[in-house]
Design a protein around this nucleic acid. Sequence first.
DNA 1: ACGCCCGGGACGTCCCGTTGTT
DNA 2: AACAACGGGACGTCCCGGGCGT
Lengths: 182, 182, 182, 182
Amino acid sequence: MLRTAATLFRTQGYHATGLNQVIAEGRAPKGSLYFHFPGGKEQLAVESLAFSGNELCAALEATLASAPEPVEALGRVITLLGAVLEESDFRDGCPVATVALDAAAQSEAIREACVAVYASWESLIAEHLRAAGIAGADRMAVVVLATIEGALLLARTRRDLAPLHAVEAQLRLLLTTEGSSS
Amino acid sequence: MLRTAATLFRTQGYHATGLNQVIAEGRAPKGSLYFHFPGGKEQLAVESLAFSGNELCAALEATLASAPEPVEALGRVITLLGAVLEESDFRDGCPVATVALDAAAQSEAIREACVAVYASWESLIAEHLRAAGIAGADRMAVVVLATIEGALLLARTRRDLAPLHAVEAQLRLLLTTEGSSS
Amino acid sequence: MLRTAATLFRTQGYHATGLNQVIAEGRAPKGSLYFHFPGGKEQLAVESLAFSGNELCAALEATLASAPEPVEALGRVITLLGAVLEESDFRDGCPVATVALDAAAQSEAIREACVAVYASWESLIAEHLRAAGIAGADRMAVVVLATIEGALLLARTRRDLAPLHAVEAQLRLLLTTEGSSS
Amino acid sequence: MLRTAATLFRTQGYHATGLNQVIAEGRAPKGSLYFHFPGGKEQLAVESLAFSGNELCAALEATLASAPEPVEALGRVITLLGAVLEESDFRDGCPVATVALDAAAQSEAIREACVAVYASWESLIAEHLRAAGIAGADRMAVVVLATIEGALLLARTRRDLAPLHAVEAQLRLLLTTEGSSS
DNA sequence: ACGCCCGGGACGTCCCGTTGTT
DNA sequence: AACAACGGGACGTCCCGGGCGT
């Protein structure tokens, strides 16, 4: 059920996703939803975000560990995100961004869930950069995360992977230069 | 009315914004909404996006032209966006992103409006970079736009301007290096 | 629509009456209800109570004026209420009591509407008693109203007019004695 | 559990009282409700009514027996009811009336339970009046019960004990006169 | 006797869009 | 241009009841 909700929230955002749709698509009984998530839609969103965040966190970790070179690893992450986006016909971008933009302003709980997911990704990236011997890894991690998020947004909207590719090339260059200069 | 709608869409997204709210907040007569926008909510969103896009385009142009140095100019743009975000209590981020994420998937017209706005901003940035003598200005403009969009998303969600500052510092460094190396 | 709602509230009370039932039974469009009563169910109840109260007030006035003797007039009122109750198969008792008991505790607006209706009836009775030269008419009006309300409650519950008849006989005796003694 | 349910039904009526509320407020296990009351909400209401009825019956009996004078005894009963009402912030009126009005029409079992409770009270009053040597005690008991019920309804709705006091004074006068005249 | 979970229906709210009238 | 009124659908919430495994 969380998976179903997570997918729908990722694709449509918070307000465009009806609970009826969640239970219909997830073959779940309606009464159960209210039983498992007494907090209603808001709680479902919070837990869906955490679920999505962890899932992508794991994928991120695996991908980062798969490459010998730190720069190459980050490139693979972007490639992976692009592949997911393309395979879903440009529907599945960042699993947090849509909800963060259309619901975080009205629910502090949802906002905090989004912040937590972003923080987990960022610390993963920072750790990776630090291990690669890059100077200012913490600050750079924010930049990397922002760049990827922005590229996902543009790519999804344009239905075109070009922004992701451009960003990937840029990050490769950036980290190589940075790496050698520090 | 367009201004009211644009503000609400920017803050809440497409689905979270009701037409009743638009007409209530804009002191507009209800009956005339469908006179001016026969296409209903969708048309209102499309025109609001164009309106927001042009408005920000003008501000962008003015800010870019205000600085003698190209790199400094881009920094001012980011500072401006951060100021707008902070003054609105972290509600007004990118006027396109929220709608792009929560409505572009279901309405081609809205998607195209978002694409158009992004394209106008991108070409403005590209032109600016080209004038500054930066190599690969077109591709770099995508990166710049993506980075700013991502930083706005993170800053808004965290209610903290730090991501914008980090990105600004990074872009300054990047463009200075690039500019001299090309 | 008010009439339909008033009947249902009278018979079933506030919580047992669904708005769906009101619109179904009243052949009214659903959107209209929300248009005419933006306050929702609560506002509908408040206005229904006032409507019922006025209607019965008029009937009361007419009946009280129809008899030459003051005591006889009050007897006719009770007879009328009994007739209404019996004709509705013991469903239509006091149009206020049911709602007063099951909703006044949670909505101050509804409580006030009930209080207003009771006050209007009481003042009508008091005026009548005063005109009949009965001492302590104001205080006696409360007693008369309470007795009638209680008898309606018992009669409705028992599906038997006996309580109304007993009360009628008692009130006749009481007012005759009082009238002569003062 | 019965006590909890009885209190809630008394205050809110049948339809406004949810079973969830009963089990929550009564710290009772949810699963066992349908073990003890296989008939569901209806059975719970029936038994709650009997419980409330017996409880008040006992209090009535004790109060009636506490006074040397029959008339004074009845006054004490009304005073007691008024005290209960006031102490509950005008929420706890007659434990039967609310349910009788909002559920008796749709459930014969509940209606019968209400009738039985009223009958038990009435016979208690009748017996008391008979012992006091009052003529027509049976018919007078109906009147007394109706008057008290009506006064409780008015007092609860108005959040003011005045109706009870008025009724008390009237009943004192009535029974004194009656008592001496018969 | 009890707790977990399911099942699905109904509630009140509120929505978007369209009439007919002025 | 504007407005009142309609029309009905969908939302999220919450309910009452019952099956299952102790």
